[in-house]
Amino acid sequence: MLLLSLAGDAFAHAVAEGDKGYIQEISGAHPIPFMYLGAKHMATGYDHILFLLGVIFFLYRLKDIALYVTLFAIGHSTTMLLGVYFNIGINSYLIDAVIGLSVVYKAMDNLGAFQRWFGFQPDTKAATLIFGLFHGFGLASKIIDYDISPDGLVPNLLAFNVGVEIGQLMALGAILIAMGFWRRTVSFWRHAYTANVAMMCAGFILIGYQLTGYFVT
């Protein structure tokens, strides 16, 4: 009942009214505003940040972190650009539910649940790329909601994507700093399991919110 009462636009890829009004009023290439919007969305997108946290949770070497983050970036950049350019819209609630599922998957992967429960280990690199594609469709649905002018669409999309990558690097930097301090404490391995269980629960909550919003609206 709580989910039914709370589900609404807040649980989709909602567009801030001020940002939406500004974007709808302008035309032509405006790289700086679109870079800002891209960075803002990624830096404040708790679902994207949770997935990113799960991806790097047990990664220690910078080259491994760079590989997985690059795969994620390739995935969401591809579907974001193509989705907006070809106007491929997916219901925001459904795509956000899949993004919540990606958080659940990564937490389960970190817990070793697939090996213990199902006897197999998914390809983590492929999964990161595939879920990146879904995250990109989430970004595309947000941009389509802006109903931006076709004049200057390509440079504005590229600028938005650059902003997304800047926001992702900012979020990643904050996560790595926090994880670096936590990993130096004796409590890290004692609480790593609990942290991933909490992450998995958060993913299920996100799925519940989005599916409830989809059926209610």
Rank of each mutant, 00 (worst) to 15 (best):
S141M: 01
G203F: 11
V186C: 06
G132C: 01
V186K: 14
P155R: 13
N110T: 09
M80R: 07
F131E: 00
G180M: 10
G180K: 14
L71C: 03
K63I: 10
Y60S: 02
I143P: 04
F188K: 11
T124M: 13
L59G: 02
M199R: 10
L71D: 00
L71H: 05
L176E: 01
D47A: 01
F204I: 15
N161G: 05
A73Y: 11
L71P: 05
V69W: 07
R190K: 15
L206H: 08
I65N: 03
A195G: 05
L211R: 07
R183G: 04
T124W: 13
L158A: 02
A113N: 08
W117G: 04
A174M: 15
K63E: 06
F57P: 02
G138S: 04
G89I: 08
F86P: 07
Q115Y: 13
F188D: 02
R190Y: 12
L172T: 15
D145I: 13
V15S: 04
Y22C: 05
N196E: 03
A66L: 10
A29L: 09
G21H: 12
V216Q: 05
I130Y: 15
D123F: 04
I205A: 05
L6V: 13
F181K: 12
Y209C: 02
D123V: 08
M42R: 12
G83P: 11
G163V: 11
L62T: 11
T212P: 04
N161Q: 10
Y105D: 00
K125P: 10
T70S: 09
F58V: 04
L172V: 14
P33W: 09
A140L: 04
I65R: 11
Q115M: 09
N156H: 05
M199K: 09
T217L: 11
Y36W: 09
Y36M: 06
T217M: 14
F57M: 02
Q115L: 08
N91H: 14
Y105S: 00
K40D: 07
G75K: 09
F72W: 05
Q115I: 11
Y209E: 03
G208P: 08
R61W: 08
T194P: 07
H41Q: 01
A16N: 14
S92Y: 07
A73W: 12
R116C: 03
V55A: 00
Y93L: 01
L62C: 08
A29Y: 14
G173Q: 12
T78A: 07
K40C: 06
F137R: 04
A14N: 07
T44F: 12
P31H: 02
L82K: 09
T70C: 04
H30R: 11
M179N: 04
K20V: 08
N196K: 08
L129F: 13
L71Q: 03
I148C: 06
K142R: 09
L59V: 08
F34T: 06
A202E: 01
Y36S: 04
N91Y: 13
T128M: 00
M42T: 15
I65P: 09
M35Q: 04
G180P: 12
G38A: 06
M108H: 14
I56V: 15
V197E: 00
L157M: 06
Q24L: 11
A140M: 02
G173P: 14
G75H: 10
G132T: 10
